[in-house]
């Protein structure tokens, strides 16, 4: 039998991207600002969510999709704050994809939500390659990880709208070059907004919260 070559020329992740667009359309119908939060394990995703929720929950209706490799430890902490939370266990998978988020959306009351956080799996290698339907991407990089992370994981830093430099309360104990870090991040991503924060002390959170409030307003006004 003769061999035939079929030209394809399609991105492997096309199917995921189509599903992500469908998720986004669904969220847009309800005017929900959706934020994909990415970082390495332990950088402070859950702490950021807890700190943000406690300061914002009287101003808007928040829901959380909690991605985790296993366990529901984070989801339980969020749940204690009294906001809607859906847990996705990826069973070892290293990122969330649009399909998982679609199922999670089916379990949320979208008409009663203004702001949706999706906490991605802690990983700096690949979550950025999988669109979920989010409007904004927020990446947390924490000081103990070192100031060289943008150079080691450039694609993650190039693909985000906001970088939160967390755990700045630890600065006196670390050799972290803040200017060098910011220069590397801006080099990869000139439009990025960087906030220095400490989820532990609350330092710097005001600026992050006002960015968030104006992003919610922009979404509602559309």
């Amino acid at each position: 039998m003769s061999v035939k070559i079929i030209t394809v020329g399609e991105d492997i992740l096309t199917a995921n991207e189509e599903k992500a667009r469908a998720n986004q359309n669904r969220l847009d119908k309800h005017g929900i600002l959706t934020i994909n939060i990415m970082s390495s394990p332990g950088a402070g995703k859950t702490s950021l969510l807890l700190g943000t929720i406690s300061r914002m929950k009287d101003k808007c209706r928040i829901a959380v999709i909690e991605g985790d490799v296993a366990s529901s430890v984070d989801a339980e902490k969020i749940n204690e704050q009294g906001v809607a939370v859906v847990q996705i266990n990826t069973a070892g998978g290293c990122h969330l994809d649009a399909n998982m988020v679609e199922s999670a959306l089916n379990n949320l009351s979208l008409e009663n939500t203004d702001l949706l956080f999706i906490e991605n799996v802690g990983n700096l290698i690949c979550p950025n390659a999988f669109l979920l339907g989010e409007h904004k991407r927020v990446m947390i990089s924490s000081m103990p990880e070192g100031d060289d992370k943008p150079l080691k994981y450039p694609a993650m830093f190039a693909d985000t709208d906001v970088v939160l430099l967390n755990k700045i309360d630890l600065k006196p104990h670390l050799d972290f070059n803040v200017d060098g870090f910011k220069k590397s991040v801006i080099g990869l991503n000139p439009d990025v907004i960087i906030f220095s924060i400490s989820c532990k002390t609350g330092e710097g959170l005001e600026a992050w919260l006002s960015w968030l409030e104006s992003a919610i307003k922009d979404r509602k006004d559309r």
């Binding site: 035939k4 079929i6 394809v8 399609e10 450039p154 694609a155 190039a158 990869l188």
Partner: peptide, 20 residues
Amino acid sequence: EVGTEIVSGRECYMESIEVE
């Protein structure tokens, strides 16, 4: 200078398949 735009290197696509 530090400050670059990624031109290529992020691709992951199927160019073609060969079938019988």
